[in-house]
Amino acid sequence: MTAPAASDVAIGDGVTPYSRTVTQEHINAYADASGDHNPIHVDPEFARSVGLPGTIAHGLLEMGILADAIASWAGGNANLLSLSCRFSKPLLPGDTIICTGTVVSVDDAGVATLEVGASSDRGDRVLTNGRATVRLSR
């Protein structure tokens, strides 16, 4: 896979829409993979005891799905140069996360800047203020 060519990318171009349903099994697997076993992610009773509706997904799991969405458009992980976002609302097990991205600039070096983000299928904007930079091919 190669990155889109800088000459073919225009401001306003969008990342291919990308959705994933996140289950408690995914969250448990992410806790093992990342080493973050905070009980708010894996223990529903504990999560409710601290005022949450139940367990919530790790923000970095959501960000990983967003990175995957952008990297798919960008022709691979190596072309994703940076990514930042705010974790605005929790994503709950069973929710589908829908990732989006739009090109806002392309510089002379062939690096595209995208505004990126994610919503849940319940309508919550879970990842906001997102920015990514992608190396395009020449």
Binding site: P39, M63, R86
Partner: peptide, 29 residues
Amino acid sequence: GPTLAQLFMDPEVGIDLAGLIHGEQSFEW
């Protein structure tokens, strides 16, 4: 992982993990 764990697991810092929220994150590679 290796850096945040040092901060948040340090009993002297005394952070209650249950009250910890990840607010924002940026990465450059």
